[in-house]
């Protein structure tokens, strides 16, 4: 092969290595398809089970522990009116668009219980804007009273404030690390100041390669 031929072949080879443009592809997952596992951060595979577990524990505990209610349903069952004031992210990772979904999941799952009545997020947000309060400030009785007053004007009284918090803990071993994710739900009785706290944890290992994961966990 001549030099120019070799050169052009080499150029072609280099170009082939660089690849061609491809259009993005998408597909709908079936119900039994597993969630993707986030390679760098927590994703659906983390948040969904955490929400399910923490909410289930909260509902279980709530049946017996807290009895302060201002409302009972037709069967005489006490119903707790809950003002869910948001999800705080105190973990070392950005939650991104999952934050909104975590709120909506918790809100709707708890709202399905007969013993809880969740105040619509729209009322809560409007009230929080009006009294200029954020979740952190709502442990103060004065802020609680302000929020209560605004929501009562909208005929949305509540007995409990629900806080959700995400935290994480990281353990490093050279280039591998394990991160423990904790989702904590805290139901605060605004009349007594007592709180009911439940949490769920999920551990996740991050590795530089699949081989590293195999070496640690054998899979």
């Amino acid at each position: 092969m001549t030099t120019s031929g070799k050169l052009l072949c080499a150029l072609l080879a280099t170009s082939i290595l660089t690849g061609c443009r491809g259009r993005q592809y998408a597909h709908v997952l079936d119900h039994d398809d597993q969630d993707l596992v986030g390679s760098h951060e927590a994703g659906a595979e983390t948040w969904k089970p955490l929400i399910d577990e923490s909410v289930a524990r909260m509902l279980g505990r709530a049946c017996s522990d807290v009895q302060t209610v201002s409302y009972t349903n037709a069967q005489g069952t006490p119903v707790r009116k809950v003002c869910f004031v948001g999800v705080e992210n105190r973990s070392s990772e950005p939650v991104g668009d999952f934050k909104e979904q975590i709120y909506e999941h918790i809100d709707s799952v708890i709202g399905q219980s007969d013993q809880f009545r969740m105040i619509s997020r729209r009322y809560v947000e409007a009230a929080m804007i009006e009294c200029r309060c954020d979740p952190a400030s709502l442990v103060l009785p004065e802020k609680q009273r302000q929020l209560q007053a605004v929501l009562e004007k909208q005929e949305q009284p509540f007995d409990f404030i629900l806080f959700a918090k995400i935290t994480s803990g990281t353990t490093r071993s050279n280039k591998d690390y394990q991160r423990d994710y904790l989702l904590t739900l805290e139901l605060l009785d605004i009349h007594t100041g007592e709180s009911l706290k439940e949490s769920a944890m999920l551990r996740k290992g991050y590795h530089k390669s699949k081989l590293a994961a195999f070496r640690k966990y054998g899979r």
């Binding site: 150029l11 072609l12 280099t14 170009s15 082939i16 660089t18 690849g19 061609c20 443009r21 491809g22 259009r23 993005q24």
Partner: peptide, 16 residues
Amino acid sequence: DYLTQKDLREQTTSYL
């Protein structure tokens, strides 16, 4: 975002 991917023809042509 689509064009940022390398293209065979363009890369070859760019060297010539």
